[in-house]
Amino acid sequence: MYKIIEARFLGENIKKFEIEAPKIAKRRKAGQFVIIRLDEHGERIPLTIADSNPETGTITLIVQGVGKTTQQLNMMESGDEIMDVVGPLGVPSHIEKFGTTVSVGGGVGTAIAYPTAVAMKEAGNYVITINGARSKDLVLLEDEMKSISDEAYVTTDDGSYGFHGFVTQKLQELIDQGKQIDFVLAIGPIPMMRAIAEVTRPYNIKTMVSLNPIMVDGTGMCGGCRVVVDGVSKFACVDGPEFDAHKVDFKNLMDRNKMYAKKEHESLEHFHEECRLEKKIKEIKE
């Protein structure tokens, strides 16, 4: 059992957790993730380690409630326990002094991009961050990003805050201004990562993306997380999750991620039904 030490909403539907996992906290490097299982009946799902504190023995997870498991997790509070937390998994981000690096985060991807941006800064890079959200109240980690960036930009799709437009447009603008950009790491929804890859491709800027295929074990045993990179199958949990954006087959990833859409819907309905029932039982008891 892994205890939740602190839990708090960062924005609508996005919650930040501090979880007691001392061994993982000690080991973990930027870019790595854990697999969690909430309870006996739970699915194993991957979540990036947004931060860790070896002293307190805790890791930070930032979770967007998109389906059954993430919504159930986001209903949990400090003091609650998670049955399984396994990690740290995946190959850590490749950190090096590139010169100028741009970290692009879309939605909850911002949280995933954050630790790598920190590490890039520590490695002596000039760090630019572009932090995208649909609207103002969905902007994540703005202060954190600012504090470690040489230049920090926020974009919103609806223009309610910061730059009005997509993260791709902001990146294009920076390139057009003649900024020398040596490295880009983009993390967010698949269409966003694909679009970023297209922005940097003509300029040959080295670009990495953190892929999010459906996983089970996270140890290389099932092959369910395979993604196509440069025409070859790779297991994202052990070979990734970061890959060269210019070589990823994004269409395949998108199609594979839709594999259980019907099932996921069914699972969520089932969960909501259970929650309703539980509420009713509670009401009757009172």
């Binding site: 009946h41 739970g42 699915e43 194993r44 059954k68 498991t69 089970v216 594999m259 259980y260 099932k263 996921e264 069914e266 699972s267 089932h270 969960f271």
Partner: peptide
């Protein structure tokens, strides 16, 4: 035993 168990299969 889906959806009583959370993990799906096609």
């Amino acid at each position: 035993n889906f959806p009583n168990e959370d993990t799906p299969i096609l």
